[in-house]
Every structure is written in C-alpha cells, then in structure tokens.
Design a binder for these strands. Structure first.
Lengths: 214, 214, 214, 214
DNA sequence: CATGAATGAGCGTTCATTCAT
DNA sequence: TATGAATGAACGCTCATTCAT
C-alpha cells in the first residue's frame, strides 16, 4: 500500500504553476452560460460546448457543477474586491470612493454584462450558496470592505456618523444591485453607454445625497 | 355519463365562489418550502407533504410547478402592492410614505420571514421568469408604484427633482432588499424585533437623508 | 410546518398490507437479469424492461440498485433459511438433514437455476455486500443454522464430535456451492435432472462419508 | 523516422527478456487493489496510484482493465497450479496430497491474504469471465489437477472409488474456498496463525474423513 | 518508456407530470 | 375532489480508453 500520490485532479494550476488554458476556457464559458440560462437552467454539456471542450474535461478541472459555480464566483468577486480595495487605499473623499466603486461595477457591466449578471443574479439569490462555502465568505468580505470605506468617511467627518457602516454598506450595494437588475431586466433604461452612465450617476447621487431635498 | 359537469381544473375558486381550503394549504405550504429550500431545491412532493395533502392534488389546483410559483408570487406581491397603494393614497409626506412602505415590509418580515424571503430571493432568480409571465409584470408594477410616490414627492417640492423616479425607486427597493438579504444570511444583525427595527430606521435614513453629511 | 407525512415510498407493502404486484414483477425480473448478466453487468433499464414496467417504477419501490440487490438476496435467502429451519426441526438423523438441505438446494436449482446462480455467484463474491447490510447477516444465519444441525448430530453421537460445527458448516456449504458453480459454468456435468441428482448424491456422500476409504 | 523499432506494446517482457520492474509493480498493486475494493469497485487510477506509476503506463503494459485482471489471475493461479502439480508428483498418499494442497493455500493466505482473496472472491464473480478467456481455462485446469489426485488415490485403493473425481475435486475446493471466505468475512475465526492452522486441519479432516462417525 | 490531459459513451438517479380509480 | 402509483425524459457524474508530447 504505497501512499505517495500523483497530484490530485481538480487542481487550478498545472505542473508549471500556471492555470491551464482549457480551464480558463471552461470558466469563461461558464460565466456566459450561467448568465444566459441560469445555474439551474443549464447543463454541463452546455458549458462544455460553449468552451469547445470535451464533456469530461469539465470534471477534470472541477469536482462538480457546484464547484464550477463557486469558482466562477470566486473569480468574479476577487476582481471586484481587488478593485474595491485599490479604490479604498487610494486618495479621495469617501463619497468619491463610493462613486468610484459604483463606477467600476458599471464599467464592468458595460464591458461584460454577462459576468455582472451572473455575479448579481445567481450569487445573491442562492440561499444555500450564501450560507456555506467560500461564496458567502467572499460576499461577506465585499460588504465589509465597503463598510470600511463608510467608516473612514465617518471618522473623517465627511459622512453622517449616525448610520451603521455595515447596514449602510448593504444598502449601498443593494441599491447598486437592483439598479443593475433593473437594467438587466429592462425596467431601467440601459440602451447605450450614455444611458448606463446616467443611471450610475443617479444611483450614486441617491445614496450619497439622499432622496430628501436639503 | 355523468350529468354534472366537472368544474374546470386549476381553478382558483370553486362552485361556491370561494377558494377551497386545500388550495390555500398548498399555497401556504409552497411559501414555506420555497423559502426553505428554494424553487429548484424542492420537489412537488415536499410541498404536498408540508400541506398535508395528496401528491396529485397539487396538480389538481395548479397546472404545473411554475404556475405554483407564479401563484405564490402573485399572492405575495398583491399584498405588498395593495399596501403600497394604500400608503400612497394616504396622507403624509413622500418621505413618510417611503418609510411606511419600508415599515410594512419589515413588519411582514418580522411576522413571516419565510414569505419575504421567497418574495425577495426567488423573484429575480430566474432570468426567464422575469422576462415572461405575470411575475415580471407584478414586479414592474411594484417598482412603478414606488416611482409614483417619488414623483409626487418631487412635484410637491419635497424630494430632489433631479433624480429619475424609476431609477430612484429601483435603488430604494434594492437597498431594502439587500438589507433584508443581509439579515436573512446573517451579515446584518437581526436577532430580535428591536434589531430589525433599528435596521429599518437606518435604511430609511440612508435612502432619504443620504450618506453625505449636510 | 406540519409534520404528518404520507407513507414513505420504497415500501414493501401497500395500504392493504400486501405486496404490490409490480413490485413482485420487478423483484423476479431482477433475479433473472442479475443471474444472466451479473449485478455490475446489467442496467436498471434491463430490469425494468424484463419486468415490463416503466423505468422510474423501479425507483418507486427500491431506493437504488443496491437495495434492489439486497431485496433479491433477502427474498432468496429467506426461502432457503426457512427450508433449512423446517428440515432442522423435522425428524431424521443429522446426515439425513444435511442430505435434505442439499436436496432442497438442488431442487430449487432444477426449478430455477437463475435464482440459485444469483444467490451463489453474486452474494458470496461481493466483499462489500458481505461486510455490511442485511445480506451478510442473512448469510451468517444460514451458516449457523447448518452449524446447529451439525452440533445436534454430534450431541446425538451420530457425527464426529471433534469437528468445529461452524467450520464444518462452512465447509459443507462451500462444497455445495462450488459443486453448483461447477454445474453453472460447465465444469461439472449437469445436462439433465438425473445428472443433477447424481451430483447431489455425490456431494452429500463426499461431505458425510469423506474421501477416505473406511 | 526512427530506425529502432518500438517494441510491441503490452508485452510482458522487454528486449532483455525480463519483465520490466514497473510492470511487476502494477501487477502487484492490482492484486492489492482488487482485493481491497473488488474489480468493479476500483478504477485504473487506483491501481496506478498504488503502484506509484503514471496513469497511462497501465495501458502501456496492459491492453485494458480486463486483461489486467486476467494477468493477475494468471499469475496467481499459475503459482497455485505449479504447487499442486509439484505436490501431485511428489510422494505420499492421496490424503496427504490433499492436505498438502490445502496447506499450501492456507500458507499463502497467511502470507498474503489479499492475493488469496482476489483469487477466490473475484474468479467466479463474473459469469462472462468464467465463460471465456484464459481465466476459466486456468480454473478448469486447477479443478482437474485436483481431480487427478483424487483419481490416483482411488486407483491406489486408498480413496473411495464410487465418487466422481471431478465432482469430488469441486467439492474439495469448494469446502476450502468457503472456509477461507468465512475467515475473510469474519464468520470463521482467523485471528492468528494458530487459528488459521486449526481451520485448515478441520477442513482437511472434514473432506477426508467425512462428517459421519465411523 | 513514461506522462497525464483529453475524450465521450454509459448509467444511476431524480422528479415533474399523467392517469386510473 | 382526492389519491398515489406509474411514466419516462433529462441530467449529473464516472471512468475506461486514447493521444499528444
């Protein structure tokens, strides 16, 4: 019974330490397919076909369908979190930073609406997904990063101190999210880039300036 | 053979014009089960069992699983829409009305968190579901009702006129939604009624007063 | 969340307390199919087809393929065990009883070789199957029943007392089994009933009288 | 292109005429793995891992999984058959020879129970496997070798002449096999070497001396 | 010889839906 | 109305086998 083992399958990196090209292809195809038909509405075969890859290869790189979804999320949120962190550590007022975060998300949306749709429509709505696994953690981290921005703005005397930073962060991201959902499903107009930019400006103004007239 | 015509299947009301008790039982059970395991995560058998009703009876009252979901949504949103409309037509400033709407939703959440979870977590979940069917329409109506409240506030000079009412409405509901999602998944504290009330107050203040200090 | 539940599926008996006809059909078909192609060599579809029953019905009555196999075994071994017990409790010398047990098995073989083949070829050879589950218990019981026969023969002064009853029982059943396996795979001639009877007599003589000349 | 011909694949011996070390490793690993999880319960990857060898190499040395099993059997049975033949051609009465054969098998069991388990539990497992291929032939040869021992004992007047040698041989091996199976699965005690030896003695006495008292 | 990524047929299982009673 | 047995399409996952290097 010898116990040394060959490197386990489902690894994200190959012997050279970089991610195999086909793994990337599958991941990107998954984003598109999930966005188009939803997690439950698509089959592994759809992903494989979209990635131009053999059926079985999906299971070579991912343990199962759920792990594939998790990987998609991890990738997407990591991008977002890194952006938030960069903005957070950069210069500017807290309001500027909130605007920058919103701007980043809207920019990504303009460039790759599918990715944002998956990020938004599938993550937030999967009760199980949010309860367990790395997805929930990642989401958690995003909320707290935004909460930190708020907190700093409060300490700098720029933002209203009486609001709970975490609740405020949840509210901010929620407004962002439903605005985008509105665009995705056609309630909010998002015909061209200018329209998207206009929505972005309005949402930022809503959460920063408030509804109420001064 | 039989002289008496069988009533049309899948009817919401029986010969006497009132809704059969078992239909209600199924509908209420569906809310609980959808909330607990999600639409895709539960089987018709689960609903039937939770309703203490025979398997086949679900199909007697509802054409299929999707129609059951639609019915649940219709019922829930109808309640919400009626409440919004009543608030809208009542007295008070626009900000009061927004607060009242949020208050209603939070009250329902305190009384029946499951119902709110279904309403929130499952509506936007299925992209197809949002594109077609009465669900999307209903959701649309809710957004526009809130937009009307905003518009009236603007016309009364109470709310800032430069914001698009629909975008603002989407943002409002989004903030509401993610705050509740945060409570549901444990990111935002919602231990007791007082905590829930506190969250409500903060979210209202966020969207009405804005983040920025005056 | 009501908790009274409809009778669980996979039940062996229906509301009237008797076994559903189709369940029997599936069980009997499974015996034939397992015998023909082996547990691993057949698909659930084969069993369903042989039983003239819809695919899904197999899963209505049995949790999964393994439970189907267990059920087949349980049924077959129960028959055998009951026969052994009846013989055991009947009159006659221990040697008569051993002969009767062997006779019973050979008779069943003549009537339904498939059943015996499953019993023998699949049970004994499935390491996992023997380790866990009811199958192993049942097999255990059979061995100990035969051991009891031996023990009584020893106490009656009829059989040699120096042999361990359990080991002797295992040896007896082993001789029986491999003789039948030999017939099944064609090493031992089993063309007609007479040939089968001859094998039976020889095996009984072998284990009772021994190889050695007196 | 290359001048040197590649050696025929799946060859048991290399250019120097001796068996490659890795081939042996695979074969031995296969014995262990088959013993542990059964033929159907293990994957080629398990064998490769246990042998500390690359996945593909298994297919370099063996055409497919079945041929690997055949090779394992061939190796194991060849050892057994050679032992039986040596015993057969050696001195001693037929009963001595039977005892010696049993002794050999039990000795191997003490040294390498896994090997015996594969030999015993997997051979007859697959009906197809017994019908065709070298496995069945090899098994056949073993039975007939034992039958020869019996026949010679009968001709020497030492064993009872009225028993069919082949049936007797099948019975002998059957008793042997189920006794060992009993040990393997824990029905027959086989805690230490002494216990194993005791079982051996009893089984030999059973088949030679018979159950019946003289 | 050696490696392990790539392929895809095959099969177990689930579960929405229908139907006979 | 009410019941639950019966149906079968759909799909996730496995794993033997091949192939490029």
């Amino acid at each position: 019974m010898s116990r040394t083992r060959t490197p386990p399958p489902h690894a994200a990196r190959n012997a050279e330490g970089n991610e195999p090209e086909k793994r990337r292809a599958i991941l990107h195809a998954a984003v598109r397919v999930f966005a188009e038909k939803g997690y439950h509405g698509c089959r592994i075969a759809d992903v494989a076909r979209a990635a131009n890859v053999a059926y079985g290869l999906v299971y070579h790189y991912f343990r199962n369908k759920e792990e594939l979804l998790e990987s998609v999320f991890a990738e997407q949120w990591t991008i977002l979190i890194n952006a938030i962190r960069a903005i957070d550590e950069g210069p500017g007022t807290a309001a500027d930073k909130v605007a920058a975060i919103f701007g980043f998300v809207f920019d990504v949306y303009k460039a790759a609406p599918a990715a944002v749709r998956v990020l938004i429509l599938e993550v937030t709505r999967t009760p199980q997904g949010l309860r367990a696994g790395s997805t929930r953690e990642t989401f958690d981290r995003a909320v707290h990063l935004v909460a930190d921005v708020v907190r700093q703005g409060q300490q700098a005397g720029e933002l209203r101190a009486e609001l709970d930073p975490v609740i405020a962060a949840a509210g901010l991201l929620g407004a962002l999210e439903l605005a985008m959902t509105g665009m995705v499903i056609g309630i909010v107009p998002a015909g061209d880039e200018a329209a998207v930019d206009r929505v972005k400006g309005e949402v930022v103004e809503l959460v920063c300036g408030g509804l109420r007239r001064r």
